[in-house]
Design a protein around this nucleic acid. Structure first.
Length: 291
DNA sequence: CACTTGACCTGTCCGC
DNA sequence: TGCGGACAGGTCAAGT
């Protein structure tokens, strides 16, 4: 679901759609997901203009002219869908896979001065958004704890190795999923990158050779970049800022492909549970390594 | 302290 | 057809 490539795809869409828009109204009744007091929303959100949309790990940062930011986490089923003035329908079939909005999953509606709207939908209510003074965003505990961005220029193979080796005894998949080690990797791209590097997900990090770590570094960056270029992965809920599906899963090698054959060697792909998650491997390419 | 499990939610799918 | 239960997975809290 929304991992780094999906959140980045949403960011790119919102960045082309939102800057310059002025917020005139916000509808929400979701204390758990959006706990800011109505008075703060009134003072720092209503009337503000969106200046920029950024991303850190799986978190979206919508910058506002009031020097506040909307900090948004989509978790598993969150969507941020923009709708222009003209609602689709009436002879104008939309490319959007999302129906008329708001719908039953809409938690927050942000209306702009040109009558366009941004909807925060979240079927399972795991997601959240917060209105935070921009200078304080980087001091939020979970933001401070995040590991480096795997696609940044200064994310070198050596840094990758150093970060992973903070958990030498843990299985590599659990470490890839740990946001404090490396930011932005979730279940899909952990499985895909481990397949690419031919590493079993339970292999203790300390047992991986430098060559294997190098291969994993390359495989991880490759799958993240490929997925961004395909608009992310749509399993069930994920859509971009205009409600469209991502197509990465058509290119996936193992994720959600149990029972099908490995594109490299033809062995039947298996599904197992690792670190509490559904995990997909080629049992031939990704051998278990014993201590 | 390291690591695993459960909770948070709701919709979907499967077996009986 | 209806129903109970497993499952989906990001992250934090609680437990081992």
């Amino acid at each position: 679901m929304p991992e780094l490539p999906e959140v980045e795809t949403v960011r790119i869409g919102l960045q082309t759609l939102l800057p310059g828009k002025r917020i005139v109204r916000v509808d929400f009744d979701w204390p758990k997901g959006f706990p800011n007091a109505a008075s703060d929303v009134e003072r720092f959100l209503i009337g503000s203009e969106i200046t920029q949309v950024e991303r850190r790990a799986k978190v979206l940062l919508v910058r506002l002219s009031t020097d506040y930011s909307l900090v948004i986490h989509l978790k598993m089923t969150g969507q941020l869908v923009f709708r222009g003035q003209q609602q689709f329908g009436a002879g104008h079939p939309s490319r959007s896979l999302v129906g008329p909005l708001p719908d039953a999953s809409t938690r927050v509606t942000i209306e702009f001065s040109d009558n366009s709207k941004l909807y925060f939908n979240d079927q399972r209510k795991f997601g959240w958004m917060r209105l935070v003074p921009t200078p304080e965003v980087e001091n939020i505990d979970f933001m401070k704890a995040l590991g480096p961005e795997p696609l940044s220029d200064d994310f070198t193979p050596e840094l990758f190795r150093q970060r992973l080796l903070k958990r030498p005894k843990s299985g590599i998949k659990a470490v890839l999923l740990d946001q404090t080690i490396i930011a932005g990797v979730g279940n899909i791209y952990a499985d895909e990158s481990l397949w690419g590097a031919k590493i079993h997900p339970l292999t203790p990090v300390g047992m991986l050779t430098k060559t294997q770590l190098r291969r994993l570094y390359v495989a991880l960056r490759d799958v993240l970049l490929l997925s961004i270029s395909k608009g992310g992965s749509t399993d069930r809920n994920y859509v971009d800022a205009e409600g469209r599906r991502g197509s990465y899963l058509r290119f996936a090698n193992v994720f959600r492909r149990e029972g099908q054959t490995c594109p490299r060697c033809g062995t039947v792909i298996q599904k197992l549970r690792v670190a509490g998650r559904g995990t997909h491997i080629c049992p031939h390419c990704q051998k278990v390594v014993g201590p």
